[in-house]
Design a protein around this nucleic acid. Sequence first.
DNA 1: CCTTTTTGTAACACATTTTGTTACATTTTT
DNA 2: AAAAATGTAACAAAATGTGTTACAAAAAGG
Lengths: 144, 144
Amino acid sequence: MTGNTRFAVSVHVLAYLAFKDGGQTTSSEIASSVNTNPVVIRRLLSALVKGRLVIAHKGASGGFSLASAPANITLLDVYRAVEPQPDHGLNRFTPNTKCPVGSRIETILRTAFFKAQTSMEAQLAATSLADVHQQLKSVCTAKH
Amino acid sequence: MTGNTRFAVSVHVLAYLAFKDGGQTTSSEIASSVNTNPVVIRRLLSALVKGRLVIAHKGASGGFSLASAPANITLLDVYRAVEPQPDHGLNRFTPNTKCPVGSRIETILRTAFFKAQTSMEAQLAATSLADVHQQLKSVCTAKH
DNA sequence: CCTTTTTGTAACACATTTTGTTACATTTTT
DNA sequence: AAAAATGTAACAAAATGTGTTACAAAAAGG
């Protein structure tokens, strides 16, 4: 049980919006698909709106819809919208700078983490919401 | 502030052992370099011993030493020894399986997470403790 | 064999993070 | 004006991570 569910739930939310293909959808309806509370969904959608992945429509008959075509939204966009900048523990890591190792290890770690993180993000960028949508549909149509 | 400091501290610990080049080192001495409590260090070293990266020597004049040459220990080995299997929130993610999206999104997410994780781990595997040791030393000798 | 030093680990407190929940203001439609 | 929806604050509960104390077990060295 590592980390949070924000990224997983957010991809689910966006996949749901893509599935509804442009129609406005309420946080209650999405919450029912995710199996959680509408406020939890709105909290995530708030971040997705700030990240310009989603448009919110207030008032009666309001709801949420995608801000772009699914092909233009990657999993990296989602990741960046809802996850804090990962620090891999470096913010809480305060080695003894009087030690030759302690004074130099931080820079080395920062470089290593950056490479690993960049590599992971490149993989996330390689999958779009259109890919996810396609996979959702192909599972259906593959049954014969 | 994302995640924990286990990986960062563990790399520091192993870099310290590599720096001491084969000699036994106590958890207290390492803790002084990391700037934390010896028990915290022993807790991590316990995992590193189980992962066969380090050898523990009990009793008076005991301590810890590397189990292999630094060139044979990669950051991925360290990562796997001290971090739980990452699930990216999927264990706590329980969508509504009666919904066409909810019932299928989990497999899709699992595939995407696996690719991202694999890519990140490949980068970690590309750096060895010998590389870290080398960087520690080159910062010293570069000064003229 | 006794003392000292060190590892091994349990137990606990504290802070932080995450999630779910209630409550309510605001906005928009009808 | 009423209804339906978003926006967000506030709080409880659970999980996680870290530091700390305490003490058992092991080994060295006299």
